[in-house]
Design a protein around this nucleic acid. Structure first.
Lengths: 230, 230
DNA sequence: AAGGCAAAAAGTGCATGCAATTGCCTTTCG
DNA sequence: CGAAAGGCAATTGCATGCACTTTTTGCCTT
């Protein structure tokens, strides 16, 4: 094969395809309901159909794409009901993570969480949406890791990535930035206090609010991407 | 292709392979750490390597097998730590399901749960381990469905199947059968009372106890399957 | 006799090719 | 004019083949 394996990160071709296609779905480049043609993808990434097929199979196992036998694959289209269920699960999962964090985080982890959280306050004052979004991701990631439970981490991280397409624009909502920080603050405070129940409750409520904030966008995205699907 | 597609249920060849291999892992025919040779599997199921490869990829995405690039695939070998984390997650997930059940189950669902649960009492008196195991599976499945949340259902069901290889023999433990029924009874009672918090607590404790009951077997299984891994 | 190196054997990774199914377009009949 | 049937193009599903990587084995050196 040609020495073309260059730019996309290392790993087998299949892994690269999983990442490449998965990223495009998670970041919204590929919209729910969009058809994923094997030959087009193969041409687009300059590989043969085989690794593309395998990647689609794995993405299907992850729930990011939907495969109709003999009829091709599409970006997974989630119903309103399933979406609500995912946000609900996310709230519960983050609640568990926060509770575990309160009970298990090491001193270093607590300090780092507090430090980063306080640093992000500046971004709120500046209204730096994109930078805040980065900190937000990092904040939640800290929560998942701080739970010290590899499987909870997996469940939470994959659920989060499946939700990613539906909450891209949440920080554009007026006042959402400051509100998000305050909600984070409630979580951090409870964790530092070692109050697992309060931390869990605060985290659940945080996600619930994000869920509502995202709902308005969901409808739009959905209508544009898959106008008819019944 | 030859008219050999007979016994295993319908679907594409890849789907059949996923089910076939996955079943063998979940039921313990293939033990953790066991090597999964592509050509052997292909020969065993009378298909070419391509669908086997795709199946292994999907099973890898589900966490049931582990793939080492250029070095073949093995049945996923979980560390003690990861196993504990999975049981812990399972306890939390079942807790959530039970809580949701208490809040959301329909009248029919509640009645069916109660009826089946009472029916299973007979099996305990008879000491019918295998039959009780079937009812047990059905009972938990009812809990997952009764939560009325498709995504929680998915998370719970896949976690349960990943744990399946490690808890096969739990009911062989003396007295475990009766104890299991009592724990189920606590869950059912709380659900019928509509007491979400109590139902969640009872379900969490139930899984925790199963976890401890299984631990002893885990060590054995593990030692036999992958004697050296550190 | 033990260690290391090299070559071969085994097994994985991907590309290509062919069969089969699907969807669409045309044709034909009511 | 509309609807059903038939054929064609496009696309998926799987098998096979070749290249590359890893592992093993046998020989040579020390």
């Amino acid at each position: 094969m040609s020495g073309k394996r260059s730019l996309i990160r290392a790993g087998t071709t299949v892994d690269q395809m999983v990442r490449a296609i998965g990223d495009r779905i998670v970041t919204g480049v590929l919209r729910p309901g969009e058809k994923l043609d094997e030959v087009s993808l193969a041409a687009r990434f300059e590989v043969s159909r085989t690794p593309v097929r395998e990647a689609l199979g794995q993405l299907s196992a992850m729930g990011l794409v939907e495969r109709r036998p003999n009829r091709g694959a599409i970006v997974a289209v989630v119903t309103q009901e399933h979406l609500a269920s995912m946000f609900e699960s996310m709230a519960e999962l983050e609640g568990i993570c926060a509770r575990f964090c309160a009970e298990r985080m090491t001193g270093n982890e607590r300090r780092a969480l507090e430090t980063e959280h306080q640093a992000s306050a500046r971004l709120v004052r500046l209204g730096a949406e994109e930078d805040y979004e980065y900190f937000n991701t990092e904040f939640h990631s800290r929560l998942y890791r701080g739970a010290h439970s590899t499987h909870i981490y997996e469940l939470t991280a994959t659920t989060r990535s499946r939700l990613a397409p539906f909450r891209r624009a949440q920080f554009r909502l007026a006042g959402r930035l400051a509100k998000s920080w305050q909600e984070h603050d409630a979580i951090v405070t409870a964790i530092l206090r070692g109050d697992g129940a309060a931390a869990g409750k605060a985290a659940r409520e945080h996600v619930s609010i994000v869920s509502e904030a995202s709902a308005v966008f969901v409808v739009d995205d959905h209508a544009r991407a898959a106008p008819l699907h019944s």
